[in-house]
């Protein structure tokens, strides 16, 4: 059992998410930074889809009532075990009664914690991922509270203690370049609007959440109105409402919407934009569909090799 002594501002149980329910308005949820989440699972010997924690900006404090292994990945944050500093991106063997504290992120936003065996919460629509707005999945469809008790599924065997090679730890850049495919409504913007979008830095706003990353920068001007007949919203779709400011839709997004979409962030860069702190800038670069496919294959390949795991189905 894991006893939560301090949950942090928003800590939720996530697995790789639920598939097939967007047509009912239910988003996939799951980790924003899939790569960091999957690596944490592999470091404790779990399947990629095992349920773990996603923490936002500030990590939790918890004690474990049985010996187990954990791994902390994602945003860079101080980790202590019984008040002794411990490494991120590494298997941490915890003795019975150990107390873990994960502090404030120094770089990045989302911290992941995997537990050997994976967290045991009831699956909803085939997934343990928490969808906060829909009060679905995870622990009672909500973020963790002080005093919550989480249980683990039994782990088949204690994992071999490992540490991710430094070269494999994703860099948290100061001004990441996010690759996008233009469309589906890029034709609804002026040439100046598109040029601004692709050449200027955009700052992450604090209102950003798992539904969408809200950014602020030079206005992306429309040529003929900002409303469209509502249609489906893909992961990474960049909506531009009337104020000309972009919103990148993430894992808890609405399934459909009526604002023009200037471009779509490649799935391989979702985790990177999800680690951008409020106030930090990003830049967008357009790539062709074929190039996006190549980048995705590269990303899948790199993930397959990271921490010696197999790729998730």
């Amino acid at each position: 059992m894991i006893r939560v002594t301090d949950p942090g501002p928003q800590t939720t149980v996530q697995d790789l998410g639920r598939v097939g329910h967007l047509r009912s308005g239910i988003p996939p949820s799951g980790p924003v930074d899939v790569r960091a989440f999957v690596i944490a699972n592999r470091l404790v010997g779990n399947p990629d889809n095992a349920a773990g924690l996603e923490c936002t900006v500030l990590g939790p404090r918890f004690t474990v009532e049985q010996a187990c292994a954990i791994a902390v990945t994602g945003a860079e944050a101080p980790v202590t075990v019984n008040d002794e500093p411990a490494a991120q991106w590494a298997t941490l063997e915890l003795a019975r009664g150990a107390s873990v504290r994960i502090g404030a992120a120094r770089a990045g936003v989302r911290i992941y914690v995997a537990f050997s065996g994976g967290l045991d919460v009831p699956a909803a629509l085939g997934s343990r991922a928490t969808y906060l707005r829909g009060r679905l999945g995870g622990l009672e469809g909500r973020s963790l509270r002080r005093g919550d008790v989480l249980t683990r599924l039994s782990a088949p065997a204690p994992p071999l203690a490992r540490r991710l090679a430094a070269a494999q730890i994703p860099a948290l850049e100061k001004e990441p370049e996010i690759r996008v495919v233009l469309g589906p409504q890029a034709d609804r913007f002026t040439a100046e609007g598109l040029a601004a979008f692709l050449s200027s830095p955009y700052q992450m706003l604090p209102q950003s959440d798992r539904m969408g990353a809200r950014l602020s920068g030079p206005r992306i001007t429309h040529s003929r109105g900002h409303d469209i007949v509502s249609d489906g919203i893909a992961l990474g779709a960049i909506q531009v409402p009337g104020d000309g400011q972009p919103i990148v839709l993430l894992v808890d997004r609405q399934s459909t919407g009526g604002y023009t979409k200037v471009a779509t962030v490649g799935s391989f860069d979702i985790g990177r934009i999800g680690q951008v702190k409020p106030g930090q800038p990003v830049r967008f670069r357009a790539v062709e569909v074929a190039e996006a496919h190549r980048l995705r294959r590269q990303w899948v390949q790199a993930l397959a090799e990271a921490a010696g795991g197999a790729v998730a189905a």
Binding site: L22, R23, I233, H293
Partner: peptide, 21 residues
């Protein structure tokens, strides 16, 4: 992988590892 109907279009999510664009 999954589909999302709306007024006038169908959004089709797919796995590029299993089918080419």
């Amino acid at each position: 992988v999954e589909t999302v109907p709306s007024f006038r279009s169908l959004l089709v999510y797919y796995d590029p590892g299993r089918v080419g664009y």
